[in-house]
């Protein structure tokens, strides 16, 4: 019941994500969607946004949850091919092992669009892929800090994602690119918070102790919002004001970071949009109805949100998406 209510709420506010509503480009088309699972709030939001996008355009979406298993995804794709769908969306759980099943789809003349993650397969086996640019996300966060701090000296502490994970590597790289050449900005400490709130809080506690009770820290850059939420609590526990004494910038734009912005405790977040399906359907529309072959890599926008962007409204909108 709660899920239904959330969907209804989300539907009423979907205009924010929908972009320009299409005429009847994909009306009545059947599209199969093989989703990885629902391991995170973002994934759940991606699923609900995809369903809403499909509904908006009158697409008959066949949804298959793979529960983190590639064999389930391959089975689902084969099922879609057997049903003769018009197109297939896949959020691939791993990068390798897709050649055979993608070839089958190609032989059946069904365009495949990859969402959110790429695959190690020949590029002619899929129509296009829609993903965010994680390096750019880091860069947008870094540029915000550069512009905000100005000429002041600023000691930054960084909460990294899981060591060795692609988003952690890329978001770190992008941020470093943005602050490169600015002598007044330095990353004083950098540790992994495993993308979780509790580790983010624990690591931030350590940083505060190590940097003169937090007085030397000017900003914290977290690779995701959850770690930032944890860090905000650690800053408060140390008797400092997050958002004022220590600037907080992070990536993802989940509802709780907007709640923190409303309270004046977070300064900026870069959106990893859950709306991968929108650009995918647009590309599909252009391809099926106009014969336009899209670019191989469609990059979603990495939008910056600050307290000036109606955080309360963003919170209310996103809360209904299953984050």
């Amino acid at each position: 019941m709660k899920v239904l209510k959330q969907l209804a709420l989300a539907a009423s506010t979907v205009a924010l994500f929908a972009g320009v509503a299409q005429a009847d480009g994909l009306q009545g088309k059947v599209v199969g969607f093989s989703q990885i699972g629902s391991e995170s709030g973002w994934r759940a939001a991606e699923t609900s946004v995809t369903k809403l996008q499909a509904e908006e355009r009158g697409i008959d979406l066949k949804f298959a949850d793979a529960q983190q298993k590639q064999e389930n995804q391959i089975k689902a794709i084969r099922g879609f091919i057997a049903q003769g769908v018009d197109a297939i969306l896949v959020a691939p759980v791993v990068a390798t092992g897709w050649d055979a099943v993608l070839q089958e789809a190609k032989d059946a003349n069904i365009p495949v669009i990859l969402l959110d993650r790429g695959v190690d397969a020949s590029e002619d086996l899929y129509l296009t892929s829609v993903a965010s640019d994680q390096v750019k996300e880091g860069r947008v966060a870094g540029e915000w800090l550069v512009n905000t701090v100005g000429d002041k000296d600023c000691k930054i502490v960084e909460l990294q994602g899981t060591v060795g994970s692609t988003p952690a590597i890329n978001r770190k790289q992008g941020f470093e690119e943005a602050i490169a050449g600015k002598a007044n900005l330095t990353i004083a400490r950098s540790q992994t918070g495993d993308f979780t709130r509790s580790k983010g809080k624990e690591v931030m506690e350590g940083f505060i102790k190590a940097e003169n009770g937090g007085k030397d820290i000017c900003a914290v850059y977290a690779h995701n919002d959850d770690m930032a939420v944890g860090a905000i609590q650690a800053i408060k526990d140390a008797g400092l004001k997050p958002g004022t004494d220590i600037l907080v910038v992070s990536i993802d734009a989940v509802p709780d970071i907007f709640a923190a912005m409303v309270a004046g405790e977070a300064n900026a977040t870069v959106e990893l949009t859950p709306n991968m399906a929108g650009p995918a359907f647009d590309a599909l529309d252009a391809y099926l109805n106009g014969g336009t072959v899209p670019e191989k890599f469609i990059i979603t926008e990495s939008k910056l949100y600050t307290p000036a962007d109606n955080p309360q409204g963003e919170y209310d909108t996103r809360k209904g998406l299953g984050y």
């Binding site: 979780t196 709130r197 509790s198 809080k201 939420v229 944890g230 609590q233």
Partner: peptide
């Protein structure tokens, strides 16, 4: 304790 610490129940990671 872990939930109270972060003021939230994180079923995936707690």
């Amino acid at each position: 304790i872990v939930a109270g610490d972060i003021r939230g129940a994180d079923a995936n990671n707690a």
